[in-house]
């Protein structure tokens, strides 16, 4: 790998004489540039998707893991007593930083999407909710449930695990799909560039014959093609990446539109991440062309 990387940098630094030995090929040049550019553009979006879903998974995981809810359903004459008992239990539970009953306004806000504005929650037999904020490694949910069952019969503890896990799992899977898309894009780029390189080699059979006749080694002949395709992929990749980044930058901001889709993008140093795409495209082109060239030269010998 070390040798190949050194050779890659040598190739990019270039041997203009070797490059001149191979005549310019317009078709394969345009195909490689276009492929590398289009694939880089798509890779920017796949990377943005991965990073955004990664952030989402981390945020959901972190935020929801630190809170839980206690719901108290009790007859009206016992509600206050059970609420006090529950608060006492929670305040004495290790791992609970704070326990706070939701106010009527907060409960009304939670029900607004279903019942509309101005619901008289005070007059309805609605369960009282207590928000629990955790600290350290959190509380022992099995132990807490056992205590609550004994001391507050109408209490139901919801630690959000039931609905948090599928959400986090979905976000993590989206992140994985994003990276898988990048791998597929790299594979497709390699396949397209291999085809273009094979077309260029086939079109230059006479050049290869002459170079062999005068004592050129296979690695020298391959180098002339590899350098050309690597530079084309680097150029196309750079153009595609820049265009992709501009497209991401032009997406509506979260503040204006809100929602997950508008959160698709890069944040802070994340904007540097797509800069890996052009050298990655060049590396893919280098190895794909080198393998194709050496294989074809071996077949032609």
């Amino acid at each position: 790998m070390k040798i190949d990387l050194a050779r890659m940098f040598d190739l990019i630094a270039g041997d203009p004489q070797a490059d001149r030995a191979v005549p310019p090929t317009g078709f394969t040049a345009r195909l490689t540039l276009f492929t590398a550019g289009a694939m880089a553009f798509l890779a920017v979006f796949a990377m943005a998707l991965s990073l955004a879903t990664g952030r989402l998974a981390d945020r959901w995981s972190a935020e929801l893991a630190r809170t839980s809810t206690l719901r108290i359903t009790a007859p009206v004459d016992q509600a206050d007593a059970q609420l006090r008992s529950a608060i006492t239990v929670l305040e004495t539970t290790p791992g609970v930083a704070a326990a706070r009953p939701l106010s009527a306004d907060e409960q009304r806000a939670l029900l607004e999407p279903w019942f509309g504005v101005g619901l008289p929650v005070e007059d309805l037999p609605i369960p009282q909710l207590i928000e629990i904020i955790e600290e350290g490694d959190g509380y022992d949910s099995i132990g807490l449930r056992a205590r609550l069952q004994a001391e507050v019969p109408g209490a139901v503890l919801d630690d959000h695990t039931r609905w948090r896990e599928p959400l986090v799992k979905a976000a993590n899977r989206l992140r994985t799909l994003g990276w898988l898309a990048i791998v597929l894009i790299a594979g497709s780029t390699a396949a397209m560039i291999t085809l273009a390189a094979q077309a260029a080699l086939a079109a230059n059979a006479q050049v290869i014959r002459v170079m062999r006749l005068v004592g050129a080694r296979d690695i020298y002949i391959a180098g002339a093609f590899v350098r050309r395709f690597t530079l084309r992929a680097l150029t196309g990749g750079a153009i595609g990446t820049v265009v992709g980044m501009i497209a991401i930058w032009l997406l509506p901001s979260t503040d204006v539109a809100g929602g997950f889709l508008t959160g698709l993008g890069f944040q802070g140093v994340g904007w540097l991440a797509p800069l890996i795409i052009p050298p990655l495209a060049a590396a893919v082109a280098f190895f794909a062309t080198r393998a194709a060239a050496l294989r074809m030269l071996e077949e032609q010998s």
Partner: peptide, 14 residues
């Protein structure tokens, strides 16, 4: 090998 042939060909003008 092909490299060795290439090198020997530098000693042969065709």
């Amino acid at each position: 090998d092909r490299d060795a042939v290439a090198l020997s060909r530098r000693r042969i003008g065709v």
